[in-house]
Simulated scan of single mutants.
Amino acid sequence: MNYRLSAILLTTLVLSYGCKTAKLPTASATAQITEEGLLNCFAPGTSLNGQPVWCEASAALFDGKNVLFANDKDMPAGQSPVFEKTPASLSDSTQAPTYLTQSAFVSARKYEDFAQTPDKKFVLLTTAFDRIKPGSHDWDSYNTILYWPNGNPEHPIVLAPDDTSRTSIGYRQRIAQVLATDEFPGAIPYFKIEGLAATDNQLLFGIREEGKSYSDFKHRVKVISVSYRIEHIGNTDRIRLANDWKLIADFDPAKAEPTLPQPLALSSLEYDPQRKRFWMLTSFESNSQLDAYLWTISPDDLYANKPFTLVRDSQGQLLHFNHKAEDLTPLDNHRLLLIHDDDRIRTTVGSRTRQPHQAAYTIVTVK
C-alpha cells in the first residue's frame, strides 16, 4: 500500500513538474513572415531645405494602443521625426500619422530605438550617441534618451544625471569607459547605440559600431547594462540610473554562423517580458545590398555572455529580410512588428516600390 502510494505520488510530481516546465519559454524559436507592407511616414513630396525628405524609420514600439515610430532624419517645421499610427492603419495611406511635436522630440537628433519597461509604465527612446563636437554643445542633441509615462507622450522627460539637462550627454563618458579596449584604453573615442531594452531593474544598450571615429570603426554586437530605479518627486515619476555600467555581452555573428554575410552588426535589442527572452536584429548593408537576421536569447544566457540563437522558419531555413531591419516590437503573444530603415534605396514589397515618404515593415509570427 505504501509502495503504491509512493509510486502514485512520484508520478504526480513528475507530471506536475513536466507541465510546469513545458510552459517555460525556451531560448530558441521558429517564425515566419506573415505580412509585409509600406508605411507612409509623411506626405509625398515632403522636403526640407529644398531637398526631398526620406523616411529612414529606425525605431518602433507598440505601447498597447498605438505604434510609435521614429525617423532618424530631421523633419520640416510642424512635423516631427517621432509619430504614431494605430496598428490597423499601418498601410493605410489615407490616414496621416499623428506627429509628436513637443520640443524634446523635435530637438533630439538621430533616433535609433524604443524600449518599454516590463510593467508597461514607461516608454523610452534613445538616439545614436554617435557624434559630439569638441569644445561645442552643437551636437549634444545626438546624445539624448527620452522617456515618458506610457500613453502620455505629450510630456517627454530627458534622462540625465540631473533634472535640468536638455540632453543625456552626461552619460556619454561612462558608456565610452565601459567600451574601452586595449586599442583604446580608458575610453573609446567613438561608438554608436542602436539597441535599447528594459528589464524590471536594468536598461540595456546595444552597440553597433565602435572605434576611432565615425569614418574609422568596426561593426559590433555588444550589450552594456546599467541599473535603474523609479523615484517619485511630487507628481512626477523619474527614472534614475545607478553607476554600475557594465559590458555584459560581446558577440560575433560570424563565429555563430560563418555563412552569413559580413559585416553584420546589431541594429535592435528588445526584451520580451511575455516570452521572457531578448530579441536582437543584426543588419547588413553593402552598396545597394541589404539584409537582416533575427536572433533570440534567454536573460540568463545574455548575462553570461553566451551566443545568441538565430531564428529559423518551420523548414529550418534562416529567417532573413531583404531590408535593413532597424527595430522590432511585440504586437501580441505571437507577432513581432519589424520596421526597416532602407536608407534611400528603393526596395520593394511585393510588386510595390518604396517611395521617399515610405518605410517598409514586416510582421513575423513566432511559434
Rank of each mutant, 00 (worst) to 15 (best):
L294Q: 06
Q315A: 14
D300C: 01
F308T: 02
H320A: 01
R312G: 00
P299R: 06
N322M: 09
D313S: 06
G316R: 12
T309E: 08
L318N: 14
Q315Y: 11
D300R: 15
V311G: 02
K324D: 07
I297L: 08
Y303C: 00
L319N: 03
S298H: 05
K324Y: 12
T309F: 07
P299L: 04
F308E: 03
F308I: 02
N305V: 08
V311T: 06
V311K: 03
S314I: 13
W295K: 01
S314E: 15
N305D: 15
T309G: 00
S298R: 12
H320K: 13
L294S: 04
V311M: 03
N322L: 05
L294P: 00
H323C: 01
N305E: 09
R312I: 05
D313E: 09
W295R: 02
L310V: 04
L310E: 07
I297M: 03
I297D: 02
L319T: 05
G316S: 10
W295Y: 09
R312S: 11
I297W: 04
Y303W: 09
V311Y: 08
Y303Q: 09
N305W: 10
D301Q: 15
D313P: 00
T296Y: 08
A304V: 07
S314L: 12
Q317G: 09
A304T: 05
Y303R: 09
P299T: 07
H323D: 12
H323R: 05
D301C: 04
